[in-house]
Amino acid sequence: MTTTAAPTLATLAADFYGFQDEALTAVERDAAARLRAFMETEVRPIALDYWDRAEFPHQIVPGLAEIGMFGAMWPETARFENSAVWRGWAALELGRVDPSTATFVGVQSGLSMSSIAIGGSPEQRAQWLPPMGRGEVIGAFGLTEPLSGSDASKGLRTTAERRGDTWVLNGAKRWIGNATFADVVVIWARDTADGQVKGFLVRRGTPGFTTSKIERKQALRIVQNADIVLDGVEVDEADRLPNVHSFREVAVVLRLTRAEVAWQAVGVAVGAYEATVAYVAQREQFGRPLASFQLVQDRLAQCLGNITASIALCLQASRMQDAGRLGDEHAALAKGYATTRMRETVAWCRELLGGNGIQLDHGVAKFFADAEAVYSFEGTRDMNNLIVGRAITGVSAFV
């Protein structure tokens, strides 16, 4: 019988200071190697085509589950002992090949499963987390609304009214990733009795619950974002998340996932940088490779500096998370800084490709477009900076 050797984890050229080898355990490096091999062989060859068609490749879900991408932080679903550092590095590996796949994993594992793990009862955890960890059940996270995004803590308009052992939900959600095919959607709604935000598990096919795909999107086109309408949707009390009493529990979920989005942003920058380095090595102008020009090398050095600084910041944030010291302000600074540097980096990369920078086949155009969505979700730069500013000054500047 022939055995296939396990892949080894080479250091990325963009990991200029070699953070990977010092940050990950041997087990985590092996898992990262399997993830990288999967992304290179199963996702990279199809990503541009699916992005162009705005379709989701459902065939990759079992493979992502097999290598432990869903629910890595929860005992019911973790495939191996891992840290927040590993989960962050995994987000980088996903993002450097396809930001849409990274976002799908973030919605399934980070937002949906974490909501159930943090807000759910032991029975709900046992019912939902294992099949979600195996990729047999797909989840979505319904927080953002047509008229409520950054102000969700105070501006949530979807309502929940209790009638005996049933809750009736009315309202609308927007930009909900995975929602067109999700088996269960975590819906956040304001209780009409006490005005507090509560969480509910709404199953696909529930009467009054409808989804429609958001079309003509120009970023993260593989992600199936949807508008959701809730028109008298009835949910049993058994499907309410009992450990959610206010928006504070939503904030706990967002704190965990925000740090991983920062890592995803680093991955987007790395992917664009790698594609650009390869391009300038073979593209000739004035009889010389672009790589031989001083201004090109200067831009590449600036890109690498952005990536290196962002890895260092994200790495410390993940270490703080492992130590139980990660606050909202720490996650906010990581997300705001990393996405800003990502946006700058992908713009420089697009610039270095000239006209080819807007043509999909060269890879950078997809990163350039996808970066705009990563820059905005899980808190805009401005909102994250206000969270940090409140920590700096002790004064809230939120309206």
Rank of each mutant, 00 (worst) to 15 (best):
A37Y: 03
A37L: 14
A37C: 04
A37I: 03
A37Q: 13
F38D: 03
F38K: 03
F38P: 06
F38Y: 11
M39D: 04
M39F: 05
M39L: 08
M39R: 03
M39G: 01
M39Y: 05
E40H: 08
E40G: 00
E40M: 10
E40V: 10
E40Q: 14
T41S: 15
T41M: 10
T41I: 09
T41N: 15
T41Q: 15
E42I: 00
E42V: 01
E42H: 11
E42G: 00
E42T: 00
V43R: 01
V43Q: 02
V43T: 03
V43F: 01
V43K: 06
R44H: 09
R44C: 01
R44E: 14
P45C: 05
P45W: 03
P45S: 02
P45Q: 06
P45M: 05
P45K: 01
P45T: 04
P45E: 06
I46L: 14
I46S: 10
I46H: 11
I46P: 06
I46N: 11
I46D: 06
A47T: 11
A47P: 09
A47C: 11
A47H: 10
A47L: 03
A47Y: 13
A47G: 07
A47F: 12
L48P: 00
L48T: 09
L48S: 14
L48A: 15
L48K: 12
D49Y: 07
D49E: 15
D49K: 13
D49C: 04
D49F: 05
Y50V: 08
Y50E: 01
Y50L: 04
Y50H: 13
W51D: 13
W51G: 01
D52E: 15
D52Q: 15
D52I: 02
D52K: 14
R53A: 09
R53F: 02
R53T: 09
A54P: 02
A54L: 08
A54Y: 05
A54C: 09
A54S: 14
E55A: 15
E55H: 13
E55F: 06
F56T: 11
F56C: 12
F56K: 12
P57Y: 12
P57A: 13
H58V: 12
H58T: 10
H58G: 09
Q59A: 15
Q59P: 09
Q59C: 07
Q59Y: 11
Q59T: 12
Q59D: 15
Q59H: 14
I60E: 04
I60S: 07
I60P: 05
I60F: 05
I60L: 07
I60M: 04
I60N: 01
V61R: 09
V61A: 05
V61M: 10
V61Q: 06
V61F: 02
V61P: 03
V61L: 12
P62I: 06
P62T: 02
P62S: 02
P62Y: 04
P62K: 07
G63C: 06
G63Y: 01
G63N: 02
G63D: 06
G63I: 02
L64D: 07
L64P: 00
L64H: 09
L64R: 08
L64V: 04
L64F: 12
L64S: 04
L64W: 10
A65T: 03
A65G: 05
A65C: 00
A65Y: 07
E66G: 04
E66K: 11
E66C: 01
E66L: 06
E66D: 14
E66Y: 07
I67Y: 07
I67N: 02
I67S: 06
I67K: 00
I67E: 03
